[in-house]
Design a protein around this nucleic acid. Structure first.
Lengths: 340, 340
DNA sequence: CTGAAAGCGCTTACAG
DNA sequence: CTGAAAGCGCTTACAG
C-alpha cells in the first residue's frame, strides 16, 4: 500500500499547524475564512482523505451503527435494513449488519460473537430487529451503548428503550374486521414461535377484534419458515378437516407461502373454500392467482423513521425512549371474498 | 460513556508489559503458555474488549470490506450481500454496504460520496456489484485498494481484476436450447439497459445458441424495473401484435414481473400463447400460475465463493485476478410448453 | 520469553 | 485567530 497523505503533510504544505488544518476541514470555528479556503484547496490538491479511524479513536466517537438481524429467509429484513442504511448514509453514518441465523436457524453462539464484534468496533449504537438474548442485552447495557429496537418490541429487561415498528395489534384488528365483515365465522391464526415478540400483539389484536365480532379463532403453531407453515397447515387439515374454518390469517410472508402451497396441494381453492390474508406487502402479491390480501406495514417508512431516530441519537446525543408505532393498512385483493 | 478497560489496564493488573498482553491476546508466539493463560484470564475478568479501531490504526490494517450496490428494487442483491457477509463474519471481517441508487435511479454523485466514505474508513477491499463509474474506479486504483467484481464483470479499465459470478452466456444458451427444443421459432429477448454489463453476455449467449438452432430473436429494450418492462412489453405488443413471437426470455426478475403483468393485462395466456422464462430463481416462482421456468444462477453460492475469495485477499494479502464463473441451471416449470 | 518506548493519524485542551 | 504538545488505544521493532 502506497504511503498515504496525512493531515501532517497537508499542514506542512499549507504552512499552518495541524490544529488549523483539522479545524478548517471539519468546518469548525476558530479559523479565518481565508485560511480555511486555502487549507481546503491544498488538501484537495494533495488528494487528502481523512482517516476516520484515527479521528474516531482520538475523538472518542464513532460513525458506525451495528444492526442485529435474524433474517432467515424473510426478505422483509433486507428491505428494513436498506431503509435504515439509506438515511444513515445521509448523515455520514454507516451500518454494519450481523445476522444471528446459521443455516436458517437462530444461533445464540453466533449472536454472542456478533455482539462482541460490534463492541470491538466501538459502534455508536446498536439496532435490534428481534428479541436479543439476555447476555447480549446485558453486554450492551454494561457498555452503555444506546440500543434501538426496530420492528420488534423491546423486552421488559431492555426498557426504557426507543422503538419503531408496526402497530401489530391494529393490524390484527383490521384483518379481523375485514374477515368478519365478509361473513367469516371461524378463523385460523397461523403463528410463528412467540420468542419473536411481534407474535403476541399480532395475535392479540386479531383475537380481541374477532371475539368482539363473534368470529372464533383457532391458533395453529408453526416454525418460522415456509416449510414449517406447510407442514403445520397440512397437519391441521388432517386433524380437523377443511370444514372447520373459513379464513386464515398467516402472520408473515414465509408462513403465507407455506399456507398457499398447503391449500393448493390439498385441492382447496382460495377464496372459494377459504379466505387468506397475509402479513407484509410483497411484490408478487398482486400477480398470484388469486392475488393476495395483505397487511402493509409500510416497511420502507419504518426503516426511514428508524434511520432518522438513530441519526438523532448518534449525532446529537439525544436521550430518546419514545415508541413510534406506524399505522398499517389493509390491501384488499382477491384472496378474501364473502363467505358462500 | 463510562471509561473503558484498556490494554494498559490489563497489563497493569496482570503485572506484565503491554507487549505481552497484546501478543497473548492476539494468539501470537512470543509468550509462554503459562503467561498467556494468565493474561487471558485477567482480561476476561476485567471485561476487556479489544478496540479494533486502535488496532487497525496502528497495525495499518483493516477488517472492514466495502460493498457497492445499485440495488433498485431487485431483491437479488440483498441475497448476494447476505451470502458474502455470512462468510466474512467467519473470518472476523465485516461488510459495509453502500447503495448508489436514490429513489430507484442510479446517482453518480451518491456513488462518489459512497466511495469517498469507504476511503475514509480505509476499507481493506471494495466489492463492486455493478459497473462502477470512471472516477470511482480511478480513486480506488489510486488508493491501491483491492477491488473484486461480483455478479458484474469488471470493465476493461479495471482489469486485471478478480470476478465471481454467473456464466451468463451459458445461461442464455440453456434457455435458447430449451425453447428451441419445445418448437419455438420466434423469441423475444427482454433486456435491461446495457450499462449493466451483465446484459451483453446474457443476450449474446441466447442469440448465438438461438441462431444455431434456427430460432429468431427480437430484442426489446426496457428500463431496469418491473414498470419499465410492463411498458416496454405492451408497447412491443401494440407495435407487432402477439402473433410475431412465441417465447420470451426476461433477463431478470423485475423484468419478468413486468412481462407477466403485461401478458395478463393483454389477455395472453402462458404458456398457451407464449412461453416465458425468467432469470434468477425466486421463492414465488413455483406458486405462480403457471409456475415459472427460470435460470437459477445459484446466488447464495456466488456470495459464498466471493466471500471466500475476499477473505483470502484480505487476510493473506494474496494477489488474485482469477475469474470464477458459476454454472447456472435451468429450472423447468409450467410457463414453458411445446408450441401448439 | 519479556519490557520500555516509539508511533499509527488524528483532535483538542492549553497558551499565546 | 493560530501553534506546540499531549494523548486516544493499540502494535511492533529494538534490546535485553
Amino acid at each position: 500500500m502506497a504511503r498515504r497523505i496525512t493531515l501532517k503533510d497537508v499542514s506542512a504544505r499549507a504552512g499552518v499547524s495541524t490544529y488549523t488544518v483539522s479545524q478548517a476541514l471539519a468546518g469548525k470555528a476558530g479559523v479565518s475564512d481565508e485560511t480555511r479556503e486555502m487549507v481546503i484547496r491544498t488538501a484537495d490538491e494533495m488528494g487528502y482523505v481523512t482517516n476516520v479511524l484515527a479521528a474516531n479513536l482520538k475523538g472518542q466517537t464513532s460513525s458506525t451503527v451495528g444492526v442485529m438481524t435474524a433474517s432467515g429467509r424473510n426478505q422483509y429484513y433486507s428491505m428494513l435494513v436498506q431503509g435504515i442504511d439509506g438515511v444513515l448514509q445521509q448523515y455520514g453514518l454507516h451500518a454494519v449488519t450481523n445476522d444471528a441465523m446459521r443455516g436458517g436457524v437462530y444461533n445464540a453462539e453466533l449472536e454472542r460473537e456478533s455482539v462482541s464484534a460490534l463492541l470491538q468496533q466501538r459502534v455508536a449504537l446498536i439496532v435490534a430487529t428481534y428479541s436479543l438474548g439476555e447476555s447480549s442485552l446485558r453486554a450492551i447495557r454494561e457498555w452503555d451503548i444506546p440500543l434501538v429496537f426496530v420492528d420488534s418490541l423491546p423486552p421488559a429487561a431492555a426498557e426504557p428503550c426507543p422503538f419503531v415498528g408496526c402497530d401489530n395489534r391494529l393490524a390484527g384488528e383490521l384483518v379481523a374486521e375485514h374477515l368478519a365483515g365478509l361473513g367469516h365465522r371461524n378463523a385460523v391464526f397461523l403463528g410463528f414461535p412467540a420468542d419473536w415478540n411481534t407474535r403476541l400483539p399480532r395475535e392479540a389484536g386479531f383475537r380481541d377484534a374477532a371475539s368482539r365480532l363473534g368470529m372464533s379463532v383457532t391458533t395453529v403453531e408453526s416454525e418460522n419458515t415456509a416449510e414449517g407453515a406447510y407442514a403445520a397447515m397440512r397437519g391441521h387439515l388432517a386433524e380437523v378437516g377443511s370444514g372447520s374454518f373459513d379464513a386464515i390469517y398467516a402472520s408473515n410472508t414465509p408462513l403465507l407461502h407455506g399456507v398457499l402451497r398447503a391449500l393448493r396441494d390439498e385441492g382447496l381453492s382460495v377464496p372459494e373454500s377459504v379466505s387468506v390474508v397475509g402479513f407484509d406487502e410483497f411484490e408478487w402479491a398482486e400477480l398470484l392467482s388469486p392475488s393476495v390480501t395483505v397487511v402493509d406495514q409500510h416497511i420502507e417508512q419504518i426503516g426511514r423513521e428508524a434511520g432518522r431516530l438513530i441519526a438523532e441519537i448518534v449525532t446529537e446525543g439525544r436521550e430518546v425512549t419514545e415508541h413510534l408505532a406506524i399505522r398499517p393498512d389493509l390491501i384488499i385483493r382477491q384472496s378474501t371474498a364473502p363467505r358462500h
